[in-house]
Design a binder for these strands. Structure first.
Length: 826
RNA sequence: GCCGAAGUGGCGGAACUGGCAGACGCACACGACUCAAAAUCGUGCGCCCUCCGGGCAUGUGGGUUCGACUCCCACCUUCGGCACCA
C-alpha cells in the first residue's frame, strides 16, 4: 500500500475489533464508570447524516474516556415499535416484525461501518417480548401506584395516523409525525399521571447544570407553573351551585365585571336549561367543540362570548356579574372558568369592549389615581396600588395578592393554588405494532391488571394486515377473549397498545442489564452504571422523550428501584445537518448519505468532517469540498506516518536538542492540552481537530527543517505517537493503522491519553505588542516574564515608537505581562 | 405578546476570565514539479487608500474603559420555545 486506502484499513480494523470484542463493558466496582449514550434510533431502514453526527460525537467521548481510564459503557439499541413499521408493512405486504428486523440488521451494519465503539452485547430491541414484557410490568407498577388510569375525555386525534396523540406530540396543532391537523375526539383512554410529578420535574431541573439552558427552559415552559388563587363564586338563583375560578391576580378581584365559562364546563347546560337562551348557547357549545385545536386557539379566531342569562356573585363585594360562555376559555386549564377583569387583563379588556361589558379600575400605577375610564386605551396589567377594593384599598398589589388570598381562605371562599399547563400523558394508541396494555376488563371487576406471572401479554406476530383497515389487536382472532384474573369469568382484553415513548422512557436502565429476566433491570447493575453521564441527541426531544424519561426515573426512584432522581447527568443537544441552507430531504434533492461518504472517502473522513465543520450543538452545513479537505488531511497524516516510520531509523541520528526540537515539543504539548480541554470541557471537537492539524503541520515543518541534518529520532517518534493517540477518538481506524505502522504494540485505543507538561510550553522569549493609545504601533521581543518597568522602557526606546512619541506627553502605560504594552500619550 | 439563542472575510468557523480580530479548513490566485493533467509542495488571500506607511472593519446606534467580537443601554434581523394558560 503506497497511499491511504480507507476502505482496506477500515475493514481490517473493524474485523479485528469485533473478533477481539474490544468494546465490551463489565460492571467493576474498582473502576470509575462512565455512561455515554446516544439516543437510540427508530429502525426506519437507513442511517441519515443526523445519525452519523450523533454517533460520531458519542464515539469521540467514549473512546476518549476509555483512554482516560474510565470504565465506559457505550450501548446501542432499537426503538423498534411504531407506526412507520405498520405502514411500510402494509405497503410492501410484509410483516412489521420482519420489516423491523431487516432494518435493524441493515442499520447495525451501517453503524459498524462507521467504526462506532458499541458494546453489542447490550443491544436491546423494544419490540422483543423480553423487553416489552418489562414495559408492561412498569405500566402495572404505575397502575398499582395510582399513576395509570383510564378516563373518557377530549383527546387529540390524528386521522392520518388513525390514533390519538399526547399533548407533547402535537406541534402547533399538527401531528408531530405526519403534520396532519389534529382533531378533537371524545374517547376513553389510558393516561399516566405525569401532572403529579410536575413540581418535581420543574424543581429538579436545577439539579442539572450539565443540561443546556434552552432545553431546561423549554421544559419549564411546557410544565408552565403559575401561582394564584382558586376563588368560589356563587350563582344567583342556583343556591346549590358554585363556580370555581383560577386567577393569578386575586388582587384584582374587586374589578370583576363578568364571568366566562368554557363551552365544556359542566355548569353550562344546567344554567340555560329551559330558558329562551338554551338553544343558542348549546348550539354555540356544540359548534365550538367541533373545532380543531388550532382553529380554536389560533390568534386570528375572534373571541366569542354568549350571555347565559345567569349571574354570579362576587364573594368579596356581593356584586352580581353576568355569566357568559366563551370560545377562548379552556376546560383543561385551571378550572375552566375565568373571572373577567377588563381593566387589568388584555384579553378581558378586548372582550369587554367588544361586548360592551363594564370596566372598573381597581389597580392604580401610583398612589395618585392616574388611570381614568374615559381615557383608558388598554388594560393596565402591571403592579400598583389597589383602589375601589373595600378595606384592601391602598394596598400594594403584590401584597394584595397575598392578603386577598388569605382573606378568601379565612372566609372559606377560596384558597391558594398552583396550576400547571402540563396535562397527563395520554398513552393509549389504537394501533397494532406496539406494546399491548396489560389490562383485562370484566363486567364484574372492571379493569383488572394482568398478573405479573402472565406477562408478557404477547403481541401476535401473524397479524393479518390489509390496506383497507387500520391494524388493531381488536381484529386479531382470539386476542380479545380472556379470563378475568380476579374472578376467572369471561372477560375481554384491552386492545390498545402503548405510546412508543413508554419504551424509550427506560431503555437506558435496561442497557445496564439487558438480559435480566427477573426484573426490568438488575438493581446492582443499575446502581453501578446509572446515571447516564453524558447523553447526546437531537433538540427535537427537549420536551418529549427527555421529559418522559425523567418522569419514569422519578417514579422508579419512588418505588425504590433506582437510586438516582434524574437519569441524564449531562446532555448535549446536537444541531441539525443541513445542506445548501436547507434540511436534507429527498424532495430538495440535497441528500448525502453516510453510505456514500463511507464508500467514497471512508468512515474516518466522514466522522472527521462532521465534527470539524461546526461545534456539536450548532447546526451544520454539509459541504462536499469540506469533506474532501478532511480527506486530504487524513491522507497527509497517513503519508507523514508512512514516510516517517520508514525514515526514522534510516535518518542520521541527531542527539542534540536545538530550537527546532524545542519548537516541535512545544507544538506537541500545546496540542495535547488543547485537544484534552476541547473534548472534555467544551465539546468543541472542531477546535480540537484544528489543533491536531496544526500539530501535523508542525511535524511537517520540523521534518522539512531538519531534512538535511537528520531528525532527532526520539523526539520525532514521541511526537508522531502522541499525534496518533490524539487522533484516535476522531479517526479510529487510521489511528489504529498508524499505530501499527509506527511499530507500536497493542491497540492505540488502549493507550493512556497523554498528559501535557507545562514546562514544555514555556518559552524564554516572547513577542510583545506595543500600542499607542490602543493602536498597535510595533512589537518587540523580550525575555519571558520581563518586569513591567523594563518592558515599558524597552517599548519606549524601540525605534519607531520613540519617533511616534516625539513631542508627546506620556500620561501612563498599561502592561499585560508577556502580551502587550499600551502607552497612553497626548 | 412572553421567554430564549444567534448575527465575525467569498464560505464553515476561531479568539480562555476585556488585551495582536480572522486560528484551522474550504474556495480562489500565483509559483514549483510535469510534455500535460491529477496528486503534492510553496506563496498570497477582510475592505479601502496616496500601499516603505496609514485608515476602516465583528448586525445598527450610543455608553463604560488606556483598550470592547467580549461588559452596559436602545434598536434591527434571523432562528427556536410557549401562546386567548386566566
Amino acid at each position: 500500500m503506497t497511499t491511504y486506502n480507507a476502505t482496506q484499513i477500515e475493514e481490517k480494523w473493524q474485523k479485528l475489533w469485533e473478533e477481539q470484542d474490544s468494546y465490551r463493558s463489565r460492571a467493576d466496582s474498582s473502576k470509575t464508570k462512565y455512561y455515554v449514550l446516544e439516543m437510540f434510533p427508530y429502525p426506519s431502514g437507513k442511517l441519515h447524516m443526523g445519525h452519523m453526527r450523533v454517533y460520531s460525537i458519542g464515539d469521540v467521548l467514549a473512546r476518549y474516556l476509555r483512554m482516560r481510564n474510565f470504565n465506559v459503557i457505550h450501548p446501542m439499541g432499537w426503538d423498534a415499535f411504531g407506526l412507520p413499521a405498520e405502514n411500510a408493512a402494509i405497503e410492501n405486504n410484509v410483516n412489521p416484525a420482519d420489516w423491523t428486523a431487516r432494518n435493524i440488521e441493515h442499520m447495525k451494519q451501517q453503524q459498524k461501518r462507521l467504526g462506532v465503539s458499541y458494546d453489542w452485547h447490550r443491544e436491546v430491541n423494544t419490540s422483543s417480548p423480553d423487553y416489552y414484557r418489562w414495559s408492561q410490568w412498569l405500566f402495572l407498577l404505575m397502575y398499582k401506584r395510582g399513576l395509570a388510569y383510564k378516563k373518557k375525555s377530549d383527546v387529540n386525534w390524528c386521522e392520518t395516523c388513525a390514533t390519538v396523540l399526547a399533548n407533547e406530540q402535537v406541534e402547533k396543532g399538527l401531528c408531530w409525525r405526519c403534520s396532519n391537523v389534529v382533531e378533537t375526539r371524545e374517547l376513553e383512554q389510558w393516561f399516566l399521571r405525569i401532572t403529579n410529578y410536575a413540581e418535581r420535574l420543574l424543581n429538579d431541573l436545577e439539579q442539572l447544570p450539565g443540561w443546556p439552558e434552552r432545553v431546561k427552559l423549554m421544559q419549564q415552559n411546557w410544565i408552565g407553573r403559575s401561582e394564584g388563587a382558586e376563588i368560589v363564586f356563587r350563582v344567583k338563583d342556583f343556591p346549590e351551585e358554585e363556580i370555581r375560578t383560577f386567577t393569578t391576580r386575586p388582587d384584582t378581584l374587586f374589578g370583576v365585571t363578568y364571568m366566562v365559562l368554557a363551552p365544556e364546563h359542566p355548569l353550562v347546560r344546567p344554567l340555560v336549561e329551559g330558558t329562551d337562551r338554551e338553544k343558542e348557547v348549546l348550539d354555540f357549545v356544540a359548534k365550538t367543540r367541533r373545532e380543531s385545536e388550532i382553529d380554536r386557539t389560533s390568534e386570528e379566531v375572534p373571541k366569542i362570548g354568549l350571555f347565559t342569562g345567569r349571574y354570579a356573585v362576587n364573594p368579596v363585594n356581593g356584586e352580581e356579574v353576568p355569566i357568559l360562555v366563551g370560545n377562548y376559555v379552556l376546560m383543561a386549564y385551571g378550572t375552566g372558568a375565568v373571572m373577567g377583569v377588563p381593566a387589568h387583563d388584555h384579553r378581558d379588556f378586548d372582550f369587554a369592549r367588544k361586548y360592551d361589558l363594564p370596566i372598573r379600575v381597581v389597580i392604580q400605577p401610583g398612589k395618585r389615581a392616574e388611570l381614568d375610564l374615559e381615557t383608558l386605551e388598554e388594560a393596565y396589567v402591571d403592579e400598583g396600588y389597589m383602589v375601589n377594593s373595600g378595606s384592601f384599598s391602598g394596598t400594594d398589589s403584590r401584597e394584595g395578592i397575598k392578603k386577598v388570598t388569605a382573606y378568601l381562605e379565612e372566609q372559606g371562599l377560596g384558597n391558594f393554588r398552583v396550576t400547571y399547563r402540563i396535562r397527563d400523558w395520554l398513552i393509549s394508541r389504537q394501533r397494532y405494532w406496539g406494546t399491548p396494555i396489560p389490562i383485562i376488563y370484566c363486567d364484574q371487576w372492571g379493569a383488572a391488571p394482568v398478573p405479573e406471572s402472565d406477562l408478557p401479554v404477547e403481541l401476535p406476530l401473524d397479524m393479518e394486515l390489509s390496506g383497507n383497515r387500520v391494524p388493531s389487536l381488536a381484529h386479531y382472532p382470539g386476542f380479545v377473549e380472556a379470563k378475568c384474573p380476579e374472578c376467572g369469568g369471561e372477560a375481554t382484553r384491552e386492545t390498545d397498545t402503548m405510546d412508543t415513548f413508554i419504551c424509550s422512557s427506560w431503555y437506558f436502565l435496561r442497557f445496564t442489564s439487558p438480559n435480566c429476566d427477573y426484573a426490568p433491570f438488575d438493581p446492582d447493575d443499575a446502581d453501578y452504571w446509572m446515571p447516564v453521564d453524558q447523553y447526546i441527541g437531537g433538540i427535537e426531544h427537549a420536551v418529549l422523550h427527555l421529559l418522559y424519561a425523567r418522569y419514569f426515573t422519578k417514579v422508579l426512584y419512588d418505588a425504590g428501584m433506582v437510586k438516582v432522581i434524574e437519569p441524564f447527568n449531562r446532555l448535549l443537544a446536537q444541531g441539525m445537518v443541513y445542506k445548501d441552507g436547507a434540511k436534507m430531504s429527498k424532495s430538495k434533492g440535497n441528500v448525502v448519505t453516510p453510505d456514500e461518504i463511507v464508500e467514497r472517502f471512508g468512515a474516518d473522513t466522514g466522522r472527521l468532517f462532521i465534527l470539524f465543520a461546526s461545534p456539536p450543538e450548532k447546526d451544520l452545513d454539509w459541504n462536499d469540498q469540506g469533506v474532501e479537505g478532511c480527506h486530504r488531511f487524513l491522507r497527509r497524516m497517513w503519508r507523514l506516518v508512512a514516510d516517517s516510520s520508514a525514515e526514522i531509523d534510516a535518518s542520521p541520528v541527531r542527539a542534540e536538542e536545538g530550537e527546532h526540537e524545542a519548537e516541535l515539543q512545544r507544538s506537541l504539548h500545546a496540542a495535547i492540552k488543547k485537544v484534552s480541554v476541547d473534548i472534555e470541557e467544551r465539546f468543541n471537537f472542531n477546535t480540537a481537530i484544528s489543533a491536531i492539524m496544526e500539530l501535523v503541520n508542525s511535524i511537517y515543518a520540523y521534518r522539512q527543517a531538519m531534512d538535511k541534518e537528520g531528525y532527532n529520532r526520539e523526539i520525532l517518534r514521541e511526537a508522531l505517537e502522541k499525534t496518533v493517540i490524539l487522533l484516535a477518538p476522531f479517526a479510529p481506524h487510521l489511528a489504529e493503522e498508524s499505530w501499527e505502522m509506527l511499530g507500536c504494540e497493542g491497540s492505540v485505543h488502549r493507550q493512556h491519553w497523554p498528559a501535557y507538561d507545562p514546562q514544555m510550553l514555556e518559552v524564554d522569549q516572547v513577542e510583545v505588542v506595543i500600542q499607542i493609545n490602543g493602536k498597535v504601533r510595533g512589537r518587540i521581543t523580550v525575555p519571558t516574564d520581563c518586569p513591567e518597568d523594563q518592558l515599558v522602557e524597552k517599548a519606549r526606546s524601540s525605534d519607531r515608537i520613540g519617533e511616534l512619541l516625539e513631542g508627546k506627553e506620556i500620561i501612563k502605560a498599561i502592561t499585560v505581562p508577556n502580551k502587550l504594552v499600551n502607552i497612553v500619550a497626548r
